[in-house]
């Protein structure tokens, strides 16, 4: 497998009222060509901050501080976290692109779709306006927008939510990036449109071989699109591995708890059984619990084991990682 992006020990601190709060802790993962990695978690897990840090879109120091490395492989490879903003700006859009949950806030309301695509192309490539315009039409066609030539003249407000997200994807794909970061790109869309967009991303990936980092809270979407999954809690990786393995046999109580709390289509109408719940709340990042950040909410919490730092990351299988002091015994219990 060809590596596209290797993230090592990524940490992000925010500064609030003269205090530094760490919101992402030593996160490491690798994105491979033609593969999708999902970052899964609830609000406050640090998944979106991770994507913004990689894109260099967090506020500059001292408001935020990012450490670690993110090595972009291939031609003019670089550490995204270690290069000056001017150089990062050249890579952003070209080698690494991003799409967001709400396309309307990412698109410029006063410029036509065509103008925004042409700008994206011409800011990185020295091609004529004419050639860029032709490429823009091609791109709209590729992302499944009907009558692409006519749509180039449309403004964002004239398009439906699904069409806007397609335009965002077209802009992100304009320069055939090696890495695409997708932050909840289908969360605001209807299910039938979500299915279209997931299908589109998959087809583009098959064709171009881009690596994708897919950020979501939805295990259904994870099952659908991701080859590998990293589950995050309170800014830390708590479990990682091949998606199918994690869905079949989650080892971390947080992962299994989250999965059990989702109602399933498969059991609809079979009586209103109680959904499993996770009591309590995500911890305040300014005052994280000692040891495992999940222990105050965990049904398997053992004082003296789970609330004592540090909880090491272990490898239950060659391609899996887990951060849980009791994973071994819990796995035995299940068996």
């Amino acid at each position: 497998m060809t590596e596209r992006l290797r993230v090592q020990d990524l940490s992000v601190h925010f500064r609030s009222e003269r205090r530094e709060v760490q919101v992402v802790h030593d996160l490491s993962f690798t994105l491979e060509a033609g593969r999708t990695l999902a970052l899964v978690g609830e609000s406050g897990s640090g998944k979106s901050v991770t994507s913004l840090a990689l894109m260099g879109l967090l506020p500059p120091p001292p408001q935020s501080r990012t450490t670690g490395s993110a090595l972009l492989e291939g031609r003019d490879g670089a550490d995204l976290l270690g290069i000056p903003e001017s150089r990062r700006r050249r890579l952003r859009g070209d080698r690494i692109a991003m799409i967001f949950q709400e396309p309307l806030t990412s698109l410029n309301p006063v410029h036509s779709v065509g103008a925004q695509l042409v700008e994206a192309i011409r800011s990185h490539r020295s091609v004529s306006r004419r050639a860029a315009w032709d490429r823009a039409e091609e791109l709209l066609d590729e992302v499944g927008i009907p009558e692409p030539a006519a749509r180039l003249a449309s403004f964002p407000h004239e398009l439906s939510g699904g069409m806007r997200q397609r335009v965002m994807i077209a802009i992100a794909l304009a320069l055939e990036p090696d890495v695409l970061i997708a932050d909840e790109p289908t969360t605001a869309l209807d299910v039938t449109v979500q299915a279209q967009i997931l299908d589109l991303l998959r087809r583009v990936q098959e064709r171009t071989g881009m690596a994708m980092l897919f950020i979501t809270h939805d295990f259904g979407v994870v099952a659908d699109i991701a080859h590998r999954t990293v589950v995050m809690y309170a800014g830390r990786m708590v479990e990682a591995g091949p998606t199918e393995d994690i869905l079949r046999r989650p080892l971390m109580p947080y992962t299994s708890g989250l999965m059990a709390s989702v109602p399933l289509l498969e059991t609809a109408g079979t009586g209103r059984s109680e959904l499993a719940t996770i009591d309590g709340f995500v911890p305040d990042p300014a005052a994280p619990p000692a040891g495992c950040a999940f222990h105050p909410r965990c049904a398997h919490n053992r004082p003296g084991r789970c609330d004592v730092p540090p909880i090491a990351v272990e490898a239950p299988a060659p391609d899996r990682s887990i951060r849980c002091a009791r994973w071994r015994e819990l796995a035995e219990e299940v068996r």
């Binding site: 009907p146 439906s160 699904g162 069409m163 209807d190 299910v191 039938t192 449109v193 979500q194 299915a195 279209q196 997931l198 299908d199 939805d218 295990f219 259904g220 979407v221 994870v222 099952a223 659908d224 199918e244 869905l247 079949r248 999965m259 989702v262 399933l264 289509l265 498969e266």
Partner: peptide, 25 residues
């Protein structure tokens, strides 16, 4: 049928037939 088939499910299970509707409402 289309709504049911489009809703992503976390239940792992091999091949899935998915009806992808074209266009918008």
């Amino acid at each position: 049928e289309a709504l049911l088939s489009a809703a992503p499910s976390p239940v792992p299970g091999g091949a899935r037939k998915r009806i992808i509707l074209e266009g918008d409402v």
